[in-house]
């Protein structure tokens, strides 16, 4: 007798827990050929609200960790991802309709990307920080500090590599993230949230909502307790991107603007994804005391 399928309904990841959407809604996720794969929770504006509260709660603790410790935790995420390779490969293959070999390459690249960013945790300050020469008897240092709660609209196409490439740079510098995953390809993000839950990442540091960036984006962009937003998930939709930028201006959020089209995530990244969400803190210290 054939075994009956276990039909899954995935949940959101907020504050280290896996709640259902406050709205109670879910939506069908299909593979690239339109075949049913699973149900995903359809996040509502109230889930955005709850996620921001959870993120804000986690922000001070995460920013207060040593950079070395944050790097270790990011590296740990990469380790746990490595352990769950088959699940990620399957999810990427189904979502993006690529061959098994290509999917494997995507997972490799995503794990490598995490390790790359993990290494930057305690090195970014050396590169973008500075000892400033000033016209007085002072030591004058500039160092990067996290911005705070960052809303991330994750890429719609690249469901795993793209996701990791926008989340890792946000949290490695000490920010906390509220992520809206790809709408049509949410399953790699769901599995990624399960990895986060089991890899020493404090609850609330990364919150992952599966849902529509066009619906949730405006709430996130207008939220007065969100300090910055990455609009990569609405790449190509200039009108929406502009309206989100306008909403984000109300509390002077830092905005990482949406590109005209989704970039090639396989390309070697630069520092811009990290420097977009840090503040420069300058300290004056008298010499000789």
């Amino acid at each position: 007798m054939a075994r009956i399928d276990v039909r899954k309904t995935y949940k959101l990841y907020i504050g280290g827990a896996f709640p259902r959407s406050e709205s109670g809604h879910s939506y069908e996720v299909t593979d690239s050929k339109g075949k049913f794969v699973a149900n995903a929770a359809l996040a509502s504006r109230k889930d955005v609200r709850d996620a921001v509260v959870a993120a804000r709660k986690a922000a001070a603790g995460w920013a207060g960790r040593t950079a070395y410790n944050r790097g270790q935790i990011l590296y740990r995420i990469a380790e746990v991802m490595e352990d769950r390779r088959p699940q990620f490969e399957e999810a990427v293959r189904q979502s993006e309709g690529v061959t098994a070999a290509v999917a494997r390459g995507q997972v490799d690249a995503a794990v490598d990307r995490l390790v790359w960013y993990a290494g930057w945790a305690d090195k970014l300050a050396q590169v973008i920080g500075n000892a400033n020469p000033v016209a007085g008897p002072f030591f004058n240092h500039t160092a990067p500090e996290p911005t705070g709660v960052v809303g991330v609209l994750a890429p719609q196409e690249s469901s795993l590599l793209g996701l990791v490439s926008v989340v890792a740079p946000v949290v490695v510098t000490g920010n906390v993230a509220v992520v809206v995953s790809s709408y049509e390809r949410p399953l790699p993000a769901v599995t990624f949230s399960e990895v986060l839950a089991t890899s020493d990442v404090p609850g609330g540091v990364v919150n992952i909502l599966t849902g529509d960036a066009a619906t949730l984006g405006p709430w996130l962009a207008a939220h007065m307790d969100v300090n910055a937003i990455d609009l990569g998930g609405v790449a190509g939709d200039t009108e929406l991107a502009t309206s989100l930028e306008v909403a984000a201006a109300d509390n002077l959020k830092r905005v990482r603007r949406a590109p005209a089209a989704e970039p090639d995530w396989a390309a070697e990244p630069d520092l811009s994804a990290m420097t977009a969400f840090v503040e420069a803190k300058t300290v004056w210290h008298p010499i000789g005391i």
Partner: peptide, 9 residues
């Protein structure tokens, strides 16, 4: 206002 506020305010 129609938008979420925060404890900063």
């Amino acid at each position: 206002t129609g938008r979420y506020s925060g404890p900063d305010y």
